[in-house]
Design a binder for these strands. Structure first.
Length: 572
RNA sequence: CGGGGUGUAGCGCAGCCCGGUUAGCGCGCUUCGUUCGGGACGAAGAGGUCGGGGGUUCGAAUCCCCCCACCCCGACCA
């Protein structure tokens, strides 16, 4: 491909609206352009990479027996009503105005529709059906370029089995395929296991990539690979030990002391002697949550414990419930439900609010002074705390956890019979008995693979492709295309390299200066640059030299023209 | 949906607070010349509903009201 006629609008300056690296690089390298928030056009260079990624996905899906479909994005609303997902998706679902259609955000319904009509016998299974197709979701806030869009490419796969045991096999096949896909795409990823969500599934795994641009927060252990969404992550951290002697309750005047830090400062005590109080409202009823020191309440854990959603109490509610404002609230004489974090179990000699403005209580013994108190894991794990992963018979890992943001690349999910039951996808088993098909669903964000790769493979100058995803194998740069010897040599090389089976991007632009071409080449990040300039052409009697530059390392070497093909072969 | 910010030439921005010639700068683009291995130089050009609508005023990019778009933080995320 000749760059003089190839549409690759590179940008010298960083577009203001782009914040995350992958987005900036895709825009600057002329791979994408935005049409509207969360809606992007892929330009030729970007689409070339998308196609390479798609091909890898296809190969690995076919390897596990997957069969590729192409389903319509435009779906009759009625099908979505059968599973009550018009409601479940709510505003996220795009509705077509002049027909009873929706734009599909995923394809469980359509795949189940086909399964229902065809998979009538246990002999018809297992099946793995997949497609690579555009999904539509009316995200309230698209962001980070292509990472969270309103329209995006997804590889979605669905398995159909006769039993949960059989589903386990299909699920494991996908686990294998996904690892193969992400390995081949040279991504550094990790797997977050089984988070029992509200979707009625029996198991799931998320494939994640560490990134500041990510929207999930996870706790990860480098040592053993433990990874958990922060919403459920636990850690090993000491509780408040129980002192031998419980002191008597004492009221302390603490004017203008609101926070735990201020309390510690005021009383010259350690924060692990304090119980922090937070009042939440759940189901219209107040709950006092006690945390040790400055520990953060993990609202997801609290909601799990209560089995209902929670919200923080409003200031006027706090005053009415406790008789005090936030900062002076505590467990003593609190008449409603009290749940304390496990770190506070049986703790004594604690300081906490007195439910009276500007007063705190000391000498609190939770066992002695708080009659009806429950304990639960309610705290948010933090970086540096001990990994809770258990080794069989050897205690826990206890290496240091790291908490960071991550991008979800893929998700494999044991669906069970939710959709087959709702839509009547039933088969006959060996005994002639009717059963619902047991399903799994499996998704990969195709553009996210691209974005994650770029997040992990760039430097200050631009993209650094790995050869497996690179849009081209070689960037051939004719430095001064006004000189005949350069034109002749580079045209010859272009023909030779292309003939040898390499995909070559030939910078044959007539008017671009050397520096300009170098900068563009580094930005585009093709793995190998072959630089043809008149000086080096003259350097050898035997036909001249060209320079070969390896983008990732920055290494340059001069190569005789006649040795070039061999050299490139060595590199590749 | 709540909070914050931005919208002026293809891109990046100044001008706005404090209204007043013909709305400016850099990059890019066109033409000519010079240059030619790390985003060159000179000269001459083209390119604008100042996001949209309404209002105030003799006069609005500038002040006021409404709307729209985009970005960031949060909420949401099968």
């Amino acid at each position: 491909m000749k760059l003089s006629t190839y549409f690759v609008p590179t940008l010298k300056e960083v577009p203001t609206d782009a914040v995350v690296q992958s987005h900036i690089l895709m825009l600057r390298a002329g791979m994408i352009r935005m049409i509207s928030a969360g809606i992007y056009s892929f330009l030729p260079l970007g689409y070339k990479v998308i196609r390479k990624i798609s091909e890898i996905i296809r190969e690995e899906m076919n390897n596990i027996g997957g069969q590729e479909f192409h389903l319509p994005a435009l779906n009759p609303t009625e099908i979505w009503e059968q599973t009550d997902r018009v409601n479940a998706f709510g505003d996220t679902l795009f509705h077509v105005k002049n027909r009873e259609y929706v734009l599909a955000p995923t394809h469980e319904e359509i795949m189940t529709f086909h399964a229902r009509n065809v998979l009538k016998s246990y002999k018809d299974m297992p099946q793995i059906w997949y497609q690579i197709q555009t999904k539509f979701r009316n995200e309230p806030r698209p962001r980070s370029g292509v990472i969270r869009g309103r329209q995006f490419l997804m590889k979605d796969a669905y398995s159909f089995d006769v039993s949960y045991d059989a589903l386990d096999k299909s699920y494991m096949l996908h686990d294998k395929a996904y690892r193969a896909i992400f390995d081949r795409c040279k991504l550094k990823y990790f797997v977050v296991g089984a988070f029992s969500g509200a979707m009625g599934g029996t198991g799931s795994e998320e494939f994640m990539v560490k990134s500041d641009a990510g929207e999930d927060t996870v706790a990860y252990c480098e040592n053993c690979g433990y990874a958990a969404n922060l919403q459920v992550a636990t850690s090993i951290v000491d509780g408040k030990s129980r002192d031998k002697k419980s002191e008597a309750l004492k009221e302390i005047h603490t004017p203008n002391v609101r926070t735990i830090d201020e309390l510690c400062e005021f009383l010259k005590i350690n924060e692990t002697q304090c119980a922090k109080s937070r009042v939440y409202i759940s189901d219209g009823k107040p709950v006092l949550v006690l945390m040790l020191g400055n520990d953060d309440v993990n609202e997801a854990k609290l909601e799990n414990k209560l089995g209902a959603t929670v919200r923080p109490g409003r200031p006027e509610e706090l005053a009415e419930i406790t008789g005090a404002d936030a900062g002076s609230i505590g467990p003593i004489n609190f008449k409603r439900r009290i749940i304390a974090d496990n770190r506070l179990k049986d703790a004594n000699n604690l300081y906490s609010g007195a439910n009276k403005n500007d007063y705190h209580l000391g000498g609190i013994d939770l066992s002695r002074d708080v009659k009806k108190i429950e304990y639960a894991d309610l705290r948010t794990a933090q970086s540096g705390e001990g990994c809770p992963n258990l080794y069989a018979g050897q205690g826990s890992c206890n290496s240091k956890l790291e908490v960071f943001s991550a991008i979800e690349l893929g998700h494999i999910f044991k669906l069970g019979t939710k959709y087959s039951e709702a839509m009547g996808a039933l088969y006959l088993d060996e005994k002639g008995k009717e059963n619902p098909i047991v399903m799994g669903s499996y998704g990969i964000g195709v553009e996210r693979i691209l974005a994650c790769f770029l997040e992990q493979n760039h430097d200050e100058f631009g993209i650094i492709w790995d050869k497996i995803l690179a849009p081209f194998d070689i960037q051939l740069i004719g430095l001064n295309m006004k000189k005949k010897e350069v034109v002749d040599a580079s045209e010859t090389l272009y023909a030779e390299l292309t003939g040898a089976g390499y995909e070559v991007l030939f910078d044959d632009r007539l008017d671009a200066q050397a520096g300009f071409k170098f900068k563009d080449a580094d930005l585009l990040g093709i793995p190998v640059q072959v630089i043809v300039g008149d000086k080096k052409l003259k350097e050898s009697a035997s036909g001249g030299k060209v320079e070969v530059k390896i983008r990732r390392t920055g290494d340059r070497l001069d190569v005789e023209l006649k040795d070039l093909l061999k050299k490139i072969e060595e590199i590749y």
